[in-house]
Design a protein around this nucleic acid. Structure first.
Lengths: 150, 150
DNA sequence: TGTAATTAAATCGTGCGCGATATAATGTCT
DNA sequence: AGACATTATATCGCGCACGATTTAATTACA
């Protein structure tokens, strides 16, 4: 019982941040084999999802939706371009901005990706209602944290 | 309404995995300034928490608790060693194994770290009950995912 | 006992993810 | 118009995180 003074806070399992952190990795491992078949990494897949939802976005628009910096997105988008899934082109209206557009291959990949979400939901073992509740609780917390970070 | 056929699945905000992914980053950003003061990164902090809870662990023991591979932990632990917080020593009973022990500085850091968890809880905007429920829901999901990944 | 299988870390290459900084284009203000 | 600030990407260095492989020690077992 040398750690009596720790019991109040020093337990990894009691850290909400750790549950989120380890759940992220668990998701990653589940996605890996499914996304390997599509030739995508997990963050690349999320970028593709935002583009399937709305094509022809700027780098910063994608960054806002995904909470990522250009220092993360620029190299990632160049890899997607190298793999023939997107095109990067300076906006003629504002040459500072880069527009990201899906190629035909990028659009086509969407059909293959349709099978992914149901597989994932099944792997979580959650019913749809619980998944929705967990999702909105996490979104609320994330937004509160983001606001606290200013 | 060109995307009618997508509405069923192609919305990033509806992806539970994305909420978890973005919440991880939000936590990271909140922790950053607090951990900078301790000279730790976020994963390093989590490793220190496991060591404060139980000293003298093997690399693989830490790996099991954190769901990390030796390829991640070995360099991380070497950085902690370089910063004078832990010692790495081959186990004389089994020379394959490396035992990780806290230095005096590593033990001392625990007192400074005591202020961190309350700051984080406050930043989440959650009351303790909600935080506990969210925590156990996430743990359950993570464990189900981990089992599905075999 | 000696060979094969297993185990524990370490190493390597790739891809995030970020803060700090750089570069170039646009906007502002006088 | 000219100087200055702002904005959008890009670049760089560092630290994860992982899969695949390697090395060394231990165990199994023929």
């Amino acid at each position: 019982m040398e750690n009596t003074s720790n019991q109040d806070f020093l337990q990894l399992e009691k850290f909400l941040c750790f549950s989120v952190y380890s759940a992220t990795h668990a998701f990653n491992r589940i996605y890996k084999p499914l996304l390997d078949a599509l030739g995508l990494t997990y963050p690349q897949y999320l970028v593709m999802v935002t583009l399937w939802q709305e094509d022809d976005q700027s780098v910063s628009s994608i960054g806002e939706k995904m909470y990522l910096e250009s220092s993360t997105l620029t190299p990632l988008l160049k890899r997607l371009e190298a793999n023939g899934l997107v095109m990067r082109k300076r906006d003629p209206k504002d040459e500072r901005s880069v527009r990201i557009n899906l190629t035909d291959a990028g659009k086509a990949l969407r059909e293959k990706a349709r099978e992914v979400p149901p597989c994932i939901l099944e792997a979580t073992g959650l019913d749809i209602e619980t998944a929705k509740r967990l999702n909105s609780d996490l979104q609320a917390m994330r937004d509160t944290l983001a606001a606290a970070a200013k």
